[in-house]
Amino acid sequence: MTAPSAPVIDAEGVGKEFVLRRRTRGLRRAATRVPAVSEVSFTVRPGETVGYLGPNGAGKSTTLKMLVGILTPTAGRLRVAGLEPARQRTELAYRIGVVFGQRTTLWWDLPLRDSFALLRRMYRVPAAEHRARLEELVELLELAPFLATPVRQLSLGQRMRGDLTAALLHDPSLLVLDEPTIGLDVVSKAAVRDFLRRMNAERGTTILLTTHDLGDVERLCRRVMVIDHGRVAFDGDLAGLRALAPVPRTLVVDLAAPAPPIDVPGARVIRTDGPRQWLELAGNPAAVIARVSHDHEIADLTLREPDIEDVVTRLYRERPDPSAPAIAGDVRHNVE
């Protein structure tokens, strides 16, 4: 075993408290403190792919903003690529690639190609190097047909691929992505995930991403961190998370006509809506499906995997006290 390399991200008790100043009666001002992130500690080593998960408002984006240096932590110690992000923001910019899924780095009025050219000057990438990298990225992301298109005319999926290219043109060793697949269709999601996998496998790019899509995590992240109420609640792999907070699969049954709740062994009706019923599966889905279709006339059947939010919600129901210590998974120790 080789000695573990220096961490790309090293967070120690990092916290962020927003202070909201509201005007109450007259000119008096009241300050409300919103603890968005409290005492988050973790390290990420080179080549890791980490999914940073949690429900809405958990503090994911806030953490990412601190990592890239655009928010200053109010507590703790943070190092990214050996730098202190908020203080060395500009220096750090050369070493990391960032995508905020909801915003674009590209210029609305410029053709993709010109946006990339502007970025080349910004990051001072030598022309030959830029050309080679751009060619590779354009091929991998199938961007060639859109290079001459102004960004405002691109679809969301095309734009996202443009943003990924933009984030990687200066060959960063760490890629930080906030909801990179938000709003994309199945095909675009798959393209983005495959691309990120390749970047990680072939170039060793370290990836930290937030998402609400279990598919992203399954396809991409060997490690997941779950935060809630600003604290790390779980750090391990996906299987560990599932084992810790098992969420049953759901069978959605569309009957030919409305009927009383279906009663079959190994399943429990949790919801009905006209002819549609939701069955929580405890046992083997095949047996339940066979039984249901034997007993009833069925128009349609869907088997639903629990999504990441369910798993996370369940995790919190099991561990309601947010000040309880985090549950550590196994991956933290064997990162290579």
């Binding site: 903003k65 240096g69 923001r89 500009t90 220096e91 910019a93 905020f100 780095t105 910004m122």
Partner: peptide, 10 residues
């Protein structure tokens, strides 16, 4: 969107 401007080395 200024977040985007701030993560650039300019």
């Amino acid at each position: 969107d200024v977040a985007i401007d701030l993560i650039r080395p300019v």
